[in-house]
């Protein structure tokens, strides 16, 4: 999928959770949203693109979620796409 679109969607999710004053809760919000609503192939692509340094414009909260809750967002064992 187009990575720009995934970035746009992830940023929109972050825009909601950014309003949460507690950073840990905000990060949990983003990561669990991705986990609960995104098909694994979308999550995998986002994670891999970030690793490859391709996600220009990605919101800092999403970046934090991807690095601090990585196992939750992309559990290595669950590839089904």
């Amino acid at each position: 999928m187009k990575i720009e679109k995934l970035v746009m969607m992830a940023n929109a999710i972050a825009a909601f959770f950014e309003a949460e004053p507690d950073r840990e809760i905000a990060i949990d919000g983003v990561s669990s949203h991705l986990r609960r609503f995104w098909d694994p192939r979308m999550r995998r692509q986002l994670v891999e693109s970030v690793d490859a340094g391709q996600c220009e414009g990605l919101n800092a909260l999403v970046r934090a979620a991807l690095s601090e809750r990585r196992e939750q967002i992309w559990p290595s064992a669950t590839a089904s796409g």
Partner: peptide, 13 residues
């Protein structure tokens, strides 16, 4: 156990 594609995601995929 993992969520699937939503309609717009289906188009993108």
């Amino acid at each position: 156990p993992e969520p699937g594609l939503r309609i717009p995601n289906m188009f993108d995929a």
